[in-house]
Amino acid sequence: MSMPAMKSEASTAVLPAAAAPAAVVTMTPKRTPATEKYLKLAKDAAVRVVPPLVVLALLLLFWELACQRAGSALPPPSRVFKDTKELIFDPFFDRGGIDKGLFWHLSASLQRVAFGYSIAAVVGIALGTLVGQSVWAMRGLDPLFQVLRTIPPLAWLPLSLAAFRDGQPSAIFVIFITSVWPIIINTAVGIRNIPQDYRNVAAVVQLNPLEFFWKIMIPAAAPYIFTGLRIGIGLSWLAIVAAEMLIGGVGIGFFIWDAWNSSHISEIILALFYVGIIGFLLDRLIAVLGKIVTRGTSAS
C-alpha cells in the first residue's frame, strides 16, 4: 500500500518542476502575432518557389523562340499546349482498348511499379539482412549480387517474357530485378554497421532472433534501408517506361511509344512532363516515409 503512495508523491513532486521551465520556453513564440508568422511562412515559401519558376519561364521562352521557325523538328511550348489540351483537361476518358486518358496510363504504370517494388522491398530487406548478418552468406552471395546488379533492366525483359509468356508479370519482374539490388546492398551495410553496443544490450536482455530482428536490426538499419529504398524507387520508375514500350498495352511507356509511331510529338512532351513529376513525387514519398520512420535513429 505504501508503494503507490510513495510513487504518486514522487511524480507530483517532479511534474511541476518539469512543467514550469517548459511553460516559460513556449510562452515566447506564442506571443508573436499570427499574421507575422504567416508572413514569415510565405516569405520562406517564396524563397524556395520563385527561383525555379523564373528558370522554368526562361527555359520555356528560349524553347519557344528556338522552335518558332516554320520547319522546326520539335513543336514550341505553345503548340504543345494547343495539341494536348484535350489530354490535359480530360485525363479520365476511356474509349476502350489503349485509347484512354493519361490518368489510366499512369495508374497502370504505377500499379506495375507498386507490385514489383513491394516485392523488391520485402525480398531486398530479407536478403540484405541475411548478407549483413552472416559472413558466409556474404561471401557466397555478394559477388553474385555485384555482377547481377550491373545488368541493365531491359536486358532481363526477353528472358522474363520467355519465362512468364505474358507482358504484365514480365514488366513486374523487370521492376523487381531493377530495384532489388540497391535495397539488398544498403540493407546489408546497415545491418553490418549496427553498433556492438546494441547487440550487447540485446544479448543481456536475451532477445530471441525474431525480436532482435524487429526491435534492434530494422530500426538500427532503417536509415540505410531507406537510402536503398529511395534509390530503388527511382530505378523502378526508370525501368517501367522502357519496359512498357516493349510489352505494349496500357501504360505511360507504351503511350509514349504509340505517340511516336503516330508522330504526335506534343503528346510525347506532355507524357515526359508527367513521368518527371511522378518520379519526383515517388522519390519524395519514400524520403518523407524514411524521415518519419527513422526519426529516432537519425537524431542520435
Partner: peptide, 19 residues
C-alpha cells in the same frame, strides 16, 4: 552466456535511440 541476472550498465549508456 549473457543474461539478465548479470545486467550491465555500459560505459556509453547504450540506450536504443529509437525508443
Amino acid at each position: 552466456s549473457p543474461g539478465p541476472d548479470r545486467a550491465v550498465v555500459f560505459q556509453n549508456h547504450s540506450l536504443l535511440p529509437w525508443l
